[in-house]
Design a protein around this nucleic acid. Structure first.
Length: 450
RNA sequence: AGGGGUGUAGCUUAAUUGGUAGAGCGUCCGACUGUUAAUCGGAAGGUUCUUGGUUCGAGUCCAAGCACCCCUGCCA
């Protein structure tokens, strides 16, 4: 007899089937045992009456601890009390692997996240990480399908790189035979060479940042999707970013209903993703923020008054701060594209705005609900002389980037792309508080284990 | 890197002015044939983060250290 996935049990109503899995929870008496079994596809209750099985089987079930792995044969029976509509009447029960004193309990008193992350290899079995990581899986598959269906070539960039792509951020240095290498912090420069060969490429892989960030938005190792397209200019880049986010969110809403429900995610803001994203320039956003700052200062809500104090802290001409992004998200209640930031706060490879030399042809997509920046992108500087000037200005070491400059020497064209942080996207969609819940084994400044 | 905070049983936590470290959950034992985070009865479980100091007496006060969390900055 073949094992049946718990999610498919309803199709076998009235029949005798075999399932295997782990005891998620159980309760019972001297005469009946209620065994909650999970197999990764779903949860079902197997009901074991004392007369249904041998005495040895009954006693084994009674003594089994949480997370014992089991094989159960039983009849699938419809029951209105079951959350999945069916139960199993247990006929045979076999223990595959014992489990005593399982450390993680099902409880209202949620242990702190650090304690749980120390046991992440086990915590993965619990409902909350299970739902979050299923959403992650769907998000990643949606991203891959989106680009595949649009004819993009999947273009893998190297993990070992010679030096900084952006010049400023801290890189992880690793010994590389007799030399030094660095773990990539972006595949973009390689993506740019890819798009000159294939037109439309997408880089999708892990990236590493050695910044000592200690916030709920940062990881030292995270996954990034980076499309790069030849002949695409800033408006087209915003179109692509918007279309991609819309596709990923609507598809996850459709296909992960149960997981979102398990996480008690209010999806009303996510559903706004079908509307066009407001596109606001940096200069316009400054005016809006000044207005919001004034408005929030008068609020009776102390949280808004505090936020008001933090808005526009950075001053005009500087990058936006976290409070600014929160205020923008609160105002629009959906994703917003902010474009044409001051050039001096952005990376060297971004194209100068032909209308205002102080501005860069770039765009950040800010997600609402306090998640902040999930996409950063730009049209790239395609002019050789302009690019060289920027490289010098930013002190990018020429000997590690000379190959990149070749792209402007041999048939340069307008082009651009963006990077989206997969974990931040998953964090937003699933509504989990911390980006570390959005990846199976998070790496942060103080955590490389398990 | 800067600012703020926390550390008591496996987990969540209480402990008045410095005066016997207590509870809920989990675990173990027992009861219960319809429980859904079951219920009821009982038991075990503590170097109060570490070291030093003040005191008749320290979970509580002081100092140093360790660990982690949150926020800011950097970014995705």
């Amino acid at each position: 007899m073949a094992f049946v996935d718990i999610r498919d049990l309803k199709k076998h109503s009235g029949k005798t089937v075999e399932i295997h899995g782990w005891l998620y929870n159980k309760r019972g008496s001297g005469k009946i045992q209620f065994l909650q079994v999970r197999d990764g596809s779903g949860f079902v209750q197997a009901v074991m009456g004392k007369q249904d099985v041998s005495e040895a089987e009954f006693n084994a079930a009674k003594a089994a601890g949480i997370e014992t792995s089991v094989e159960i044969t039983g009849e699938v029976r419809e029951d209105a009390r079951s959350p999945i509509g069916v139960e199993l009447t247990c006929r045979k029960f076999k223990i595959l692997g014992e489990s005593k004193d399982y450390p993680i309990q099902i409880t209202e008193d949620v242990p702190n996240i650090d304690w749980l992350l120390d046991r992440r290899h086990l915590w993965l079995r619990s409902k909350r990480p299970h739902a979050t990581l299923r959403i992650r899986s769907e998000v990643i598959q949606a991203i891959r399908d989106f680009y595949y269906n649009k004819g993009y070539v999947l273009f893998d960039s190297p993990i070992f790189t010679p030096a900084s792509c952006e010049g400023v951020s801290t890189l992880f240095e690793v010994p590389y035979f007799d030399e030094k290498a660095y773990l990539t912090q972006s595949g973009q420069l390689y993506g740019e060479s890819g798009c000159m060969a294939f037109g439309k490429v997408v880089v999708f892989g892990p990236t590493f940042r050695a910044e000592k960030s200690k916030t709920r938005r940062h990881l030292t190792e995270f996954w990034m999707v980076e499309p790069e397209v030849a002949f695409l200019e800033l408006d087209g880049i915003m179109d692509l970013a918007e279309e991609q986010i819309r596709y990923v969110v609507t598809r996850t809403l459709e296909r992960c209903k149960e997981d979102l429900k398990a996480l008690e995610r209010d999806t009303s803001v996510l559903e706004q993703v079908t509307k066009p994203f407001p596109r606001v320039s940096y200069d316009e956003i400054q005016k809006l923020l000044a207005k919001l700052k004034e408005e929030y200062a008068k609020s009776s809500d102390p949280a808004l008054v505090k936020l008001s104090g933090d808005i526009l802290k950075q001053g005009f001409g500087d990058d936006l701060g976290a409070a600014d992004e929160t205020a923008v998200g609160m105002h629009f209640k959906q994703c917003v594209c902010i474009h044409r930031y001051p050039r001096h706060v952005k990376a060297f490879y971004m194209k100068k705005d032909p209308v205002n030399a102080e501005r860069a042809m770039c765009v950040d997509v800010i997600a609402p609900e306090g998640v902040g920046e999930i996409i950063g992108g730009s049209q790239r500087e395609e002019n050789y002389d302009e690019l060289m000037a920027q490289i010098k200005k930013h002190n990018v070491p020429m000997d590690s980037i000379d190959w990149f400059v070749d792209l402007r020497r041999y048939g340069t064209v307008p082009h651009g792309g963006f990077g989206m942080g997969v974990e931040r996207c998953v964090q937003w969609i699933s509504g989990v508080d911390h980006v570390r819940e959005a990846i199976p084994f998070p790496r942060t400044i103080y955590r490389t284990k398990p």
